[in-house]
């Protein structure tokens, strides 16, 4: 693999990434959350990362953010290796990689006003406070919140509004990549749809790339150009968003797709029957594989 930043290299390239967490106690084997994962995100692209709890999808996002320990493998951002950066070097990346977390209730400090939260990354970059204040208003406008929201505390906002604020914070430094960790799964159905539209609109307007982590195949399908499916710390299927989410090849992705109930009694009855057949077929295949 050529280490020089090729012009054609995608924005983010993750190769054979292994993340291990130490387990307390002498001589215990560390827990391997990621077992050699490779993925790439191009400029302006949304790559969906789908999987169930414990699949390692959140860990992958955190590793890209520098919040999870990289044991092996590499993470390159615009050709630069960022997997093992010091805390200090990592801080200088803040205007290029940003994050929106899942829980809109704990991702904002309850005792800081929205303006304080949004201005925090700007302050770090030594932007004067008058300028920062102006930017905060622009950001609020960008995410569809009134500008008088700046002086309020997070608890005055609903989940969907808080998630808009978290998105505004991520946009503050005009990053090239935003890691979105289940950003809509805590939201109600109708709010979820609107926040997803916001994500889409921002991407079309600014050309920011997303690594979009979610457990929900439908959400990922709605927003992602390409989709990767994770299972037990590995990527089991990776490719075109439409293909992976409607006609998957890997048995696990098939199970995932068939497990989600459809909002129509007749089609759901059909899916249920299909699912039962599929599970039986997979079981037979496993038996044969085991026998062979």
């Amino acid at each position: 693999m050529n280490a020089t930043p090729a012009a054609s290299e995608p924005l983010l390239v993750v190769e054979d990434l292994v993340v291990e967490y130490p387990i307390k106690g002498v001589g215990r084997k560390p827990f391997r959350a990621l077992k050699g994962v490779s993925i790439d995100v191009r400029a302006g692209e949304c790559v969906g990362l789908v999987g169930e709890s414990g699949s390692g999808k959140t860990t992958l996002g955190r590793a890209v953010l520098g919040l999870a320990p990289v044991t092996e493998g590499s993470i390159r951002f615009k050709g630069q290796e960022i997997g093992q950066l010091s805390r200090k070097a990592r801080r200088s990346l803040s205007d290029q990689i940003q994050v929106v977390f899942q829980d809109p209730y704990t991702s904002l400090n309850p005792s800081l006003t929205i303006e304080q939260t949004l201005a925090e990354p700007l302050r770090v970059k030594n932007i004067p406070s008058a300028e920062a204040s102006k930017r905060v208003r622009k950001l609020l406008d960008q995410v569809g919140l009134p500008s008088d929201a700046a002086q309020r505390l997070p608890r005055e906002f609903s989940g969907g509004q808080r998630q808009r604020i978290a998105i505004a914070r991520a946009l503050a430094l005009e990053p090239e990549l935003i890691v979105c960790d289940e950003p809509v799964s805590a939201l109600d159905l109708s709010t979820q749809a609107r926040v997803l539209d916001l994500f889409k609109g921002i991407q079309e307007a600014t050309g920011v790339a997303y690594l979009f982590v979610s457990h929900d195949l439908a959400v990922v399908r709605h927003l992602s150009h390409r989709v990767a499916v994770m299972y037990h710390g590995e990527i089991v299927e990776y490719g075109d968003g439409d293909k992976v989410t409607s006609d998957p090849e890997h048995p696990y992705t098939q199970r995932l797709l068939m497990a989600a109930p459809v909002a129509d009694p007749d089609r759901q009855a059909q899916r249920r029957a299909d699912r039962t057949r599929m599970l039986e077929a997979q079981r037979q295949a496993d038996l044969q594989a085991g026998a062979a």
Binding site: R42, C46, L189, Y238
Partner: peptide, 30 residues
């Protein structure tokens, strides 16, 4: 409005439309 917000049957977003990037490797799966 609740029914409208259901994503299940919605269209997929489709591939990224930058022709320049099309040739990069998309088959990273094992």
């Amino acid at each position: 409005s609740l029914f409208d917000a259901i994503l299940e049957d919605g269209a997929a977003r489709g591939p990224l439309a930058h022709a320049a990037d099309r040739n990069t490797n998309a088959g990273g799966a094992k």
